[in-house]
Design a binder for these strands. Structure first.
Length: 585
DNA sequence: GCCGTTTTCGGCCCGACTGTTTTCAGTCG
């Protein structure tokens, strides 16, 4: 049975094959956009298809809806098979080599019969590429470097790795002379869970200062390879395989540039359309007046924006926070004056999920309390693993009760600083049972139920396990609902329509697990929870004190899902959180 | 192939950089 992801992947491959065939770029983009839409979809295509709702999805028209239905019913796509009969799929991998595009890939295929990266590597090493038209010794060398780089990193990298690494580079550049302003742009700024590359912008008063900054950038010790080194733009590959792009621009263009390079592409397209409706062409440099045919009027004065607020004001909109810029309704919401008042890190008062040395954490209850207090938390819940999770030293009922005595003791010790409550992260067992009996759960302040084992069970089983947990009156929250782990582990296969309805009906909380390897639930599910009126909680799931610092990743995910502070349980002040817990008893 | 309160046909992404050119094509974001 094909999943959303499978179908998105097939469309993505169709897009690549069409590009290799030299089809119109717009047809290629149509498949590309459809793949992207499906990838970000919070619901099952199967359910949407049953409702005849496929054509209502953005970027899905009659043709692609039919193709989706074909895949859902037959598990295959004839169009895709026809394409692969014409063009070897191995060329897609070759095209993914940095510096090799569709034209070069086809050239290697047609001239030398190359269909795999391995064959291309041998040909390049044997010096067979340099004599092809448009190639030379340098291009051949670049192909070899591109293949080497390919093996160093696999696709997108967790924001938990990319963000600190990007911030360190930015901080270094900000210390250089003549740098007026600097920022991270791209998907890092929008808080995406995975990052393709790092985008850095630096503003100067005079472009004469740019080359020195570029020279410094490409000479930094973390640079593994220089991919490009120009006057206004340079690209490097870091030791960890990530690519970082730096652009230097004059301060006058800061707003348009930051907006442009923050994306998303889809959001930018909408921004350009809004500008055109006002007779202006928008790019990273400025707004330029255009004539009725859309041609730029060269002698008309351009409009420069040195802030993003000014860019949005120019198209008649309020500032739109970067996390919302996905063309997922944010433009329309801004036009109606109904943008959400997004949650911020400052709104977070508590942390409802963390581990100690009782199970697989490395710090004591008291240490975790002290560390959380040092980070400004007003309350925490200690939630160690339950008895069946032997690998994590899960707590027997006796140890759980003994732990409660220590939690109460620490709570008293910390009085006036931080409140410490006692909970559990209880396993939802493989057979669907819960790992502690109800009379034990009744003694706890806060109960999380989570999936940790048998994650590859079929949809019915997983769904039933989740429903069992949701329907138990003592369970307060479902932890990391889909149990995905970036990048290795796919989310569990459950009927989320049914699960969300049940969560809503039973008044349970859904966790946004802030660990950047999890970010679970993800932004699309957050948005669905917000729309349905399901309460959320953003927790670090800390296994050591430093993990308490992961909260910002959870907040970014919440913001990407349009969550406001009022949608999130652990923004409540302590007394209200206590009232909430009491109301559940 | 999608999309539309300027259009159901004719738009959709274009600028910087590189390497091979001999004025430009291919790639990338």
């Amino acid at each position: 049975m094909l999943t959303n992801r499978d179908i998105a992947d097939i469309f993505e491959k169709c897009a690549n094959l069409l590009q290799l065939k030299g089809e119109s770029i717009h047809r290629y983009l149509a498949y590309q956009r459809a793949a992207e839409t499906i990838r970000e979809l919070p619901r099952d295509l199967r359910a949407i298809s049953a409702e005849k709702g496929l054509v209502d999805l953005p970027n899905i028209g009659k043709t692609l809806a039919e193709k989706i239905d074909e895949m859902l019913t037959t598990g295959k796509l004839a169009f895709y098979e026809k394409l692969t009969a014409e063009i070897p799929v191995g060329l897609i991998d070759i095209m993914n080599i940095n510096g090799v595009g569709p034209k070069k890939a086809m050239l290697f295929y047609q001239e030398l019969g190359i269909t795999t990266v391995e064959a291309l590597k041998s040909a390049a090493a044997a010096g067979k590429l340099r004599d092809l038209p448009g190639m030379g010794a340098k291009s051949e060398q670049k192909v070899l470097e591109g293949i080497a780089s390919l093996s160093r990193h696999t696709g997108r990298i967790s924001i938990g790795i990319a963000l600190p690494s990007a911030q360190a580079i930015l901080d270094e550049l900000l210390r250089l002379p003549n740098v007026l302003e600097g920022a991270l742009a791209g998907s890092i700024r929008r808080g995406k869970p995975t990052i393709g590359d790092i985008d850095i912008l630096i503003a100067v008063a005079d472009m004469a200062h740019a080359p020195a900054i570029m020279d410094y950038f490409v000479a930094m010790p973390i640079v593994a390879r220089i991919l490009g080194h120009g006057e206004t733009k340079s690209s490097i590959e870091l030791q960890n395989g990530l690519q970082a792009d730096l652009r230097v621009l004059v301060k006058q263009k800061w707003g348009t540039a930051l907006n442009y390079f923050s994306g998303s592409k889809e959001h930018n397209v909408r921004m350009r359309q809004l500008a055109l409706a006002k007779g202006l062409s928008l790019n990273e440099h400025a707004f330029s007046p255009v004539d009725a045919d859309g041609n730029i009027l060269e002698d008309a004065p351009k409009i420069y924006c040195d802030t993003e607020e000014a860019v949005y004001a120019q198209v008649g909109l309020p500032f739109i926070p970067p996390e919302l810029r996905e063309d997922a309704g944010e433009i329309e919401a801004a036009q109606r004056g109904e943008l959400p008042n997004l949650i911020t890190l400052n709104d977070i008062k508590g942390d409802l999920h963390m581990h100690t040395t009782y199970s697989d954490g490395v710090a004591s209850i008291q240490q975790m309390a002290e560390e959380a207090y040092a980070r400004g938390r007003q309350y925490i819940v200690i939630t160690d693993h339950s008895r069946s999770l032997g690998i994590a030293n899960g707590l027997s009922i006796e140890r759980l009760l003994a732990q409660q005595a220590e939690v109460r003791h620490v709570d008293a010790l910390m009085y006036g600083k931080i409140r410490v409550f006692h909970g559990t992260e209880m396993d939802i067992n493989a057979d669907g049972s819960l790992d502690y009996p109800d009379d034990v759960l009744a003694k706890l302040d806060f109960v999380i139920a989570s999936l940790h084992v048998s994650l590859r069970q079929d949809r019915d089983k997983i769904t039933q396990r989740l429903l069992n947990a949701i329907q138990n009156p003592h369970v307060d929250m479902i932890g990391h609902l889909t149990a995905r782990y970036i990048p290795d582990r796919e989310p569990v296969d459950a009927d989320m329509d049914v699960v969300f309805d049940s969560v809503k009906a039973h008044g349970k909380v859904l966790e946004i697990n802030a660990n950047p390897r999890r970010l679970d639930i993800d932004a699309s599910y957050v948005r669905r929870a917000v729309d349905m009126g399901i309460l959320l909680a953003i927790n670090t799931d800390a296994h050591q004190p430093s993990h308490l610092d992961l909260m910002p990743y959870g907040v970014m995910t919440a913001r990407r899902g349009w969550a406001e502070a009022r949608h999130v349980l652990n923004t409540y002040p302590t007394d209200e959180f206590i009232k909430w817990m009491e109301s559940k008893r």
